[in-house]
């Protein structure tokens, strides 16, 4: 087996560079498919945004110092899910003032069902998040569900994301990009696959960095879960340079390992 590698996204070997919190805001898109759950990557991004460290990298024992607020908005998981996973990575979120979790999963389809209710929720959210002092990293997970389950259009949903984009220093949208979700047979704008493809392509057209998680094309393997491709988005940064590469990753019970491809 080849040598285990550190995770880094930029040529300066950082995951989220300090410059993002100064004057170069980041818009990242993470796409995944069945079999390659992004939760390990989300956890590492949360850690890096909070402290600038990464538990799977060599210099993991580096002194942790808080740097940014992290807001996780999830349509897929509840707080317990993240609490448990982050604890394993050595992050105690219960007494962390900089970690904010917004659970939109529990109320999904109860309070969140019409386009109007979604607009209302996002208006509230942007107000709440705006009141958080200092730097902000926002991660939104599973928002594409709203397209197939409610009457909201892709443009309306993007407008909601804009509200958060304005107040965030770094914003990551984590979305599924399975073939079934984006394969268009009929160009009918009310079909979920039309809306989802439209949504993801419009996201990519404003992205600075794109992370893609895919299973191995050759099928399942015992020691490899899938590939992580890091590429530039369509909009370059002013000065930051994305380190484009492809990792093989292996998620096991205790940890995640990365290898170069």
């Amino acid at each position: 087996m080849s040598q285990q590698q550190d995770l880094n996204l930029f040529v300066d070997n950082s995951i989220i560079p300090q410059k993002v919190y100064r004057d170069e805001p980041l818009f990242g898109v993470i796409t995944h498919t069945q079999g390659t759950s992004p939760s390990w990557l989300i956890n590492l991004l949360i850690e890096n945004a909070l402290y600038g460290t990464c538990v799977i990298n060599h210099e993991k024992n580096q002194h942790r110092q808080l740097r940014s607020n992290v807001v996780v908005i999830s349509f897929l998981n509840d707080f317990d899910f993240y609490e448990k996973d982050l604890k394993r990575n050595g992050i105690e979120v219960n007494d962390n003032q900089q970690f904010h979790f917004i659970d939109l999963f529990t109320d999904l389809f109860q309070k969140i069902n019409t386009p109007e209710s979604i607009v209302k929720i996002f208006d509230q959210l942007s107000k709440t998040i705006q009141n958080i002092p200092n730097k902000k990293t926002i991660l939104i997970e599973g928002i594409e569900f709203l397209l197939s389950s409610t009457g909201i259009t892709s443009i309306q949903l993007l407008n909601q994301i804009n509200k958060l984009n304005k107040i965030a220093d770094a914003l990551f949208i984590i979305t599924g990009a399975d073939k079934e979700l984006i394969d268009i047979q009929h160009a009918n704008p009310s079909l979920p696959e039309f809306k989802t493809l439209d949504f993801i392509i419009r996201l990519l057209h404003r992205s600075n960095i794109v992370l893609g998680l895919r299973p191995l094309e050759t099928g399942r393997a015992k020691d490899i879960t899938g590939t992580l491709t890091i590429s530039k988005g369509t909009i370059p940064f002013d000065s930051l340079v994305v380190s484009e590469k492809e990792y093989l990753f292996f998620v096991s019970r205790e940890t995640t390992k990365l290898f170069f491809r």
Binding site: T31, A177, K179, L204, T229, S231, P236, E244, E246
Partner: peptide, 12 residues
């Protein structure tokens, strides 16, 4: 088509 953004796109 699979929305896999490969390396080396969006160049100057």
């Amino acid at each position: 088509n699979k929305l896999n953004i490969v390396k080396g796109l969006n160049n100057s």
